[in-house]
């Protein structure tokens, strides 16, 4: 009883978040190969907000009958919504682990594919006032550094990268997500933070410094169509479109690497 209530509530939340239920009637029985139409509901990691919004618009131009509706959020939260029965067509995650919770629950239609990769950089205030150029400078005493908490993907990646670099950093704060860590840099509350290159690119008013050890903490972004999709053909078409050349260009522009 408790579980069913939780599922219903989450599903309601997702539908409400997307602005209304998907248009099931026109999309429901379309066999594959038919023109793509209807609404495609995509749950995507928050770091994909800028690039996917652009890709969604391009997709609509390619398939004028179809509209993409996005719900961006933390990958693990989205995965929980999917396993709780949220009606969506596509899931794009910021890391393979959260994707695994969806595939393990049997909610994926097919195997996830990696469509982009992201890498950590050192985010510093615009102009790099403290002249930070290497990752070991983050360990110097008095330096205020924000990392993501180990529980969230960017935090796990930061741990891996720092271990590979052989640097021990004691952060002043373990932020709940990458945007929060970045915000602390923007406000000047910390001297540096380890965040994804795409986030630095999107923020604009911070500088990103590449560091070699980040290669050992590269983040794969997998995407998959969902089994309980209200619009399966639309979902499949969107997954295919994300791997097309125009979409890859949009992702690269946002700072992602090719898989």
């Amino acid at each position: 009883m408790g579980r069913r209530l939780l599922v219903t509530l989450l599903a309601t939340a997702v539908v409400a978040g997307c602005g209304g239920p998907a248009d099931h009637d026109t999309a429901g029985g379309t066999p594959s190969g038919q023109p793509v139409a209807g609404t495609v509901t995509v749950l995507a990691a928050a770091s994909l907000t800028e690039s996917f919004t652009r890709i969604g618009a391009a997709f609509h131009r390619a398939h004028p009958g179809a509209t993409v509706r996005f719900s961006f959020g933390g990958s693990s939260g989205l995965a929980q919504q999917i396993t709780a029965g949220a009606p969506a067509d596509v899931f794009a995650s910021a890391n393979p682990d959260t994707m695994t919770t969806v595939t393990d629950a049997g909610d994926a239609a097919g195997k996830p594919v990696t469509f982009a990769r992201n890498q950590l950089v050192i985010a510093v205030p615009k102009g790099n006032p403290q002249g930070i150029s290497t990752v070991d400078q983050l360990a110097s005493p008095g330096r205020k550094v924000a990392l993501c908490a180990a529980q969230v993907p960017c935090g796990a990646a930061a741990q891996r990268a720092l271990r590979a670099a052989g640097v021990r950093v004691t952060p002043v704060s373990q932020e709940q997500d990458v945007k929060a860590a970045l915000a602390k840099v923007k406000l000047g509350e910390v001297d540096a933070a380890l965040v994804y290159r795409t986030d630095v690119r999107a923020a604009g008013d911070v500088d990103g410094i590449e560091f070699p050890a980040s290669a050992s903490a590269i983040n794969d972004y997998p995407i998959v169509a969902l089994r309980a999709a209200p619009n399966p053909s639309g979902g499949a078409a969107f997954v295919a479109y994300v791997r097309s050349e125009p979409a890859r260009a949009a992702l690269a522009a946002a700072g992602f690497q090719r898989p």
């Binding site: 924000a146 952060p171 002043v172 704060s173 373990q174 932020e175 709940q176 602390k184």
Partner: peptide, 9 residues
């Protein structure tokens, strides 16, 4: 709290 004081165990 999380915005102003951050999160450190």
């Amino acid at each position: 709290t999380i915005t102003f004081a951050g999160n450190f165990p």
